[in-house]
């Protein structure tokens, strides 16, 4: 009983937080704070003066038509954009109050901010090796600890039961849905605080999609999640809040309920009911 009550309490807390950030008032302690982020590739501007907060333990869904800058935004959060030759960025991104481009090193940041790509990309190694890849390169060689990590990560990604008997076989032999959950497990093995998902279900069937969503809902308890998705229904199902991007502009960010029932901007409504994109 007491437990349930506490949960409800959390919920109301969060709703208040949502309202304030919707009004662009700073939440006292956001996990990630993006301010005036502008991204150019060469002369083309793909993200325009973006400011938003991402709260602890929320799933922020990012929706928008193709080429609206969603992926570019996501890849700036873990500095995977660093390797684009002709990119120019301005503005700031703070993780727990520290500037990720100035105060943190990229490798350390990427361990704290994990990423799941649109297509599952298992490395051509065994399941076990895929999951221990990051920890081993970080200098973790304790065999029994790694085995335990593999088990824990696979369980958290709802994959353990399906693969526990063939951890040493190639990850490429898994089905697409299993591969994507392996990628989630692999990211979880780094014990990240934030997880970025870039259209993680775009190549998956409905059942695999449901499993991935289920693990996302579970991960939300201990992680901050940003979910870029082309599937508005998915955003509605799992998003705590939803942001709508259009041509590099943040049109609107609000609680998912509000975005899908009474959006403030007519363009948001047009997109949701499928008038463009």
């Amino acid at each position: 009983m007491g437990h349930a009550e506490k949960k409800r309490c959390d919920m109301t807390d969060r709703r208040e937080a949502n309202n304030s950030s919707a009004g662009q008032v700073d939440h006292p302690d956001p996990k990630i704070k993006v301010r005036e982020l502008t991204i150019h590739y060469g002369k083309v501007r793909v993200l325009n003066n973006l400011s938003l907060d991402i709260q602890k333990n929320e799933i922020l869904s990012v929706i928008g038509p193709a080429n609206s800058g969603k992926t570019s935004f996501l890849r700036s959060l873990n500095r995977l954009n660093d390797f684009e030759p002709n990119i120019r960025m301005s503005g700031s991104i703070l993780l727990d109050g520290r500037n990720i481009y100035k105060d943190l090193d990229a490798e350390g940041l990427r361990k704290r901010v994990g990423m799941i790509f649109a297509l599952p990309i298992p490395l051509p190694r065994s399941i076990h090796d895929n999951i221990t890849y990051g920890p081993r390169l970080a200098g973790d060689h304790d065999k029994s600890a790694l085995d335990q990590l593999v088990e824990d990560s696979l369980k958290a990604a709802y994959l353990w039961d399906e693969v526990k008997d063939r951890l040493r076989s190639s990850a490429l032999k898994l089905s697409g849905g299993q591969q994507q959950r392996l990628c989630i497990a692999r990211t979880l093995a780094l014990k990240p605080e934030v997880i970025l998902f870039d259209e993680p279900c775009s190549g998956l069937d409905p059942i695999s999609t449901a499993k991935v969503e289920e693990s996302m809902m579970e991960l939300k308890k201990n992680h901050t999640i940003v979910l870029v998705t082309n599937n508005t229904k998915q955003a509605a199902r799992v998003g705590t809040r939803t942001a709508f991007f259009l041509m590099g502009d943040l049109v609107e960010i609000d609680s998912t309920e509000k975005i899908f029932t009474a959006p403030a901007d007519s363009r948001t409504n047009d997109y949701i009911i499928g008038r463009f994109g």
Partner: peptide, 13 residues
């Protein structure tokens, strides 16, 4: 390229 990105995203240098 995706192998490189996966590896980097897992914190590898």
């Amino acid at each position: 390229k995706s192998y490189r990105e996966v590896s980097l995203s897992l914190g590898a240098s």
